[in-house]
Simulated assay, not measured.
Amino acid sequence: MLVYDGDCGFCTSSVRFIERYVPARAEIVAFQYADLGELGTTAERAEHEVLWIDRAGRVSGGAEAVGRLLTAAGGPWRALGVVMRVAPASWAAQAAYRLIARNRHRLPGGTAACALPPAGRPGGHG
């Protein structure tokens, strides 16, 4: 399962790209609609990074989560996902993920609401 921030326009645009182009065999859900306690995580974590929860209930976040999603998709995506999770590429992937996460409100599909704390976003989740 991939868990993302459904209040963030950039995150939602990214998920739509995944749904269209990445043959992910996974449920994709906004954290605002997920039972995070049952999934073994918290809203605080889900507000700050995309999460991947595998069938065994292990939770990965950030670039690791994206790498695991791509690995699970198979085909050429699998190779990219594996590379993203092995050092030193994993270090670069995590640095890129953090840079993107901090600036998601400035990226295509992002809105000013993406930069606000969750309680201050339109819709008031948090």
Rank of each mutant, 00 (worst) to 15 (best):
S60H: 14
N103L: 04
A101T: 10
I53E: 02
H48N: 15
A92T: 11
P122H: 13
P88C: 00
R20N: 06
I53L: 07
R68L: 15
R106P: 00
G126S: 08
A101E: 05
L51R: 05
W91S: 08
A65E: 02
P23H: 13
Q94E: 15
L99K: 13
L116Y: 04
I100W: 10
A119V: 13
P76A: 14
W77E: 04
R45C: 04
I100F: 10
R106E: 09
P118K: 03
L70T: 06
V3Q: 09
A30Y: 05
E27P: 12
A24R: 08
E49T: 14
Y21M: 13
D35H: 07
R20D: 03
Q94K: 14
G124I: 02
A24H: 09
E19V: 10
A43V: 13
L69N: 07
R104G: 07
A72W: 06
G81A: 10
V83L: 15
R121S: 01
G37E: 13
A30E: 07
V3G: 05
A34K: 10
M1I: 07
C11M: 02
W52I: 01
A79W: 13
Y97Q: 03
E64A: 12
P88A: 04
D5E: 06
A63R: 07
R78C: 00
Q32M: 07
C8D: 06
G109A: 12
S90Q: 10
G6Q: 05
L116H: 02
D5G: 06
A63M: 03
F17G: 01
I53F: 07
A63W: 02
A24Y: 11
G6R: 05
I100E: 08
A46M: 01
Q94P: 01
L99I: 11
Y4G: 03
A113C: 12
V3W: 06
A101F: 12
A95Y: 07
A119S: 13
D35Y: 08
W77Y: 12
D7W: 04
A26S: 14
V15E: 09
P108R: 10
R102S: 12
C114T: 01
G110F: 09
F10R: 08
G9M: 08
I18Q: 10
D54P: 05
A119I: 11
G61M: 02
E47L: 03
G75F: 08
M84D: 00
A72E: 15
V86D: 00
Y33L: 04
S90M: 00
A89D: 00
G6N: 11
A46L: 04
R58F: 00
G40I: 09
P76C: 03
V15Y: 06
E19G: 14
N103G: 01
T12R: 15
D54G: 10
A92W: 09
E27N: 11
G61W: 01
Q94Y: 02
E49H: 03
G126L: 04
D5V: 05
S14R: 07
I28R: 14
D5W: 04
